[in-house]
Design a binder for these strands. Sequence first.
DNA 1: TCTGGGGTCCTAGGACCC
DNA 2: TCTGGGGTCCTAGGACCC
Length: 417
Amino acid sequence: MFALIDCNNFYVSCERVFNPSLNGRPVIVLSNNDGCAISRSDEAKKLGIPMGAPIFKYKSLIDKHKIVVLSSNYPLYADMSHRVMNIISGFTPDMEIYSIDEAFLKFRGYENYDLFTLASLMRNKILKWTGIPTSVGIAPTKSLAKLANKVARKFPVQTNDVYLLDSDNKRLKSLTYFKPNDIWGIGKRLTRRLEYIGCKNALDFVNLPEQWVKSNFSVVELKIQQELKGISNLNLESIKLKKSIATTRSFDKPVCDLDKLKERVSTFSLSCAEKLRRQNSISNVIIVFIRSNFFRKDLKQHSCSRVITLPYPTNSSFVLNNYALKAVEEMFQSNVSYKKAGVIVTSLSPSDNYQLGIFENEDYRHKPLMKIIDHINSKYGDKIKLANQDLTKKWKMKQEFLSPSYTTRLSDIIRIR
DNA sequence: TCTGGGGTCCTAGGACCC
DNA sequence: TCTGGGGTCCTAGGACCC
């Protein structure tokens, strides 16, 4: 059996652990730049704040119901996530950390155990040790465990936050209850197409001919369909290196100036290079994109990306930076206001084991320098930059409602009188 | 006025190879 | 008049996840 354990309203729950006055009140946590609501307490959900809601559109609702608004505090959430995952890993070695607030577990050889009781035990331990409430779904496949988790979340009182989907009757009942959109892997677009051909609930999707699903959608949806029939197709995935690494940002104010845009892309490419070195990878392909604000239909739109295959794989800040800047110069249009840009490095391989180029390879010269820079920057904060980067900290994320880093910064630790 | 960031996987079409 | 088959790699874009 597989289990999916999910932290309820994770970011909001993290905030509540250290600020209990938020309990029972509607709370939302915002995305970077205080743009959208990305975590909502049950109270805020009930008031009608949807996932991803831009807050400026909900100002009156927020004022009217005194909804507490917080900026996202990633150091706090990452640390709390770590603690929760640590506790979970004590229950079974077969664990896949699926996201910051979710983990899949596999119970091999647990035939004689009562999984419902075991899951409740795990849930209570996490709540007691970290203060984070969770829900658990248990089922024969990963997709069904996801669905079972939805049942637990939807009916917390009836299920005690744990749902064991262990019979065909329960499977059919759950599939009938949920919409295609509730299925893990079926999003808005596919749901629209499914509804068009008459699928009202998840069971209708499962009953479609497999051949039709494969040819009209793809093998991904076929696998999901089989998983929902109880045929296990997806296994736990072991921790592995990232296949791509990205640094992308929206700008507070639109950027019309090439030099400013270059400064941003430069910083993003260096950030990617640093992340590459941290996981001991090198990249062979770098993608750079810039784009205007597509919410502003009244302005001239421009969205462009360049995929550059490097002459040799590298994680050198200098090499990646040079190619990224060339790409921006090529793409930039002078009469456009840019709202977002990003750098993605992909086609990654291990840095200690790669094919050398015959003619050009500056990497070996940069390597010791990169090591020193990384060391200094991690020890003293980002002190070493390239000369074309912003040295004045002009680019700062909007975070007006930021909570303290309770668990990761000494000066922010709570004092008890 | 103000609308996030970081990932994965798949497909189609074009260009190229022998 | 009539022009193959089996591959790889690249690019761009789409769909999904949290």
